[in-house]
Design a protein around this nucleic acid. Structure first.
Lengths: 143, 143
DNA sequence: GCGATATAATTGATAACTCAAGTATATGTC
DNA sequence: GACATATACTTGAGTTATCAATTATATCGC
């Protein structure tokens, strides 16, 4: 038995915590959304022009471009997002949130906030700040 | 545009950070191990009797029992772990780390520690402790 | 000791990704 | 302005997980 470092322990622990978080957010399925769908809608809703390039979505959410393409396919079909081309660069296809997308996001957001409260009830504000900063240093988004 | 809470932001950020961590640990493939394989070997190496029930591995790593069964199949074939039955409870099949498993774990551990240092170079010792405790509150393991 | 219920593990079908390769377009260099 | 290189996105094949159902065994209440 050889003990691993605190740093490595924290990284492994993060992996487990992620699986716990992901499972809790399965409840978003009552809105017909996966957690990744919800995160995408949040990014779009907060984007200055309510549209983003697929590649930027991928970078922000921590998926590959391929993963984003596949994630968006059903969302386009359902009508939560649509495509928009870029006049100056024909390679780009923007992802635009629709009115239906905004509506479902607003509903899902209520559920998501409830889940967040359930998950982080006892964590002190100060500790949350440290967690937040560390996550940011590790590449997490600041929003 | 409606702003989400700090708590929710942190949970989403954790998801992204997890994807960054997982990608870095892809490097463990030089040892023929996935990150999950490595975590399993670490759990077994640290277990008091160097064996664990599948269900306990699942709980500790944050997977389902099904996921553990499928994860262990190739590791059994390669000979990093073996099975052992429980005399008192025939439902249980223990997972036991082999000498080969210990050897590869020891090698992979060096790589893993390097990656951990690369990922968390600047995080202060005090923050690491708080971080560790926060993750534990969220269901992370203490080890 | 028997039936109801709970637990440990596995399996079939499926979901949500990844990587590598391919297509289309843009940009830089000479 | 042609050619090499880079970028945005998609697609085929494979991986790694999930859930629901199944099998086998154990435990509880009577």
């Amino acid at each position: 038995m050889s003990t691993i470092s605190d740093s490595l322990t924290i990284l492994i622990s993060t992996m487990k915590v992620q699986s716990i978080i992901a499972r809790r957010f399965d409840r978003l399925s009552v809105h017909g959304l996966g957690f990744s769908d919800f995160i995408i809608l949040n990014l779009l809703d907060n984007a200055p022009v309510e549209k983003m390039r697929r590649i930027d979505l991928a970078e922000k959410i921590g998926l590959t471009a391929s993963g984003v393409t596949r994630l968006l396919l059903p969302m386009e079909k359902t009508g939560f997002v649509t495509r928009e081309s870029n006049q100056r660069d024909a390679r780009v296809s923007y992802v635009v949130i629709t009115a239906a997308g905004k509506k479902i996001f607003e509903e899902a957001r209520q559920t998501a906030e409830l889940i967040a409260k359930e998950l982080l009830p006892s964590v002190k504000a100060k500790d949350l700040k440290i967690l937040s900063e560390t996550l940011f240093a590790l590449g997490g988004n600041a929003y």
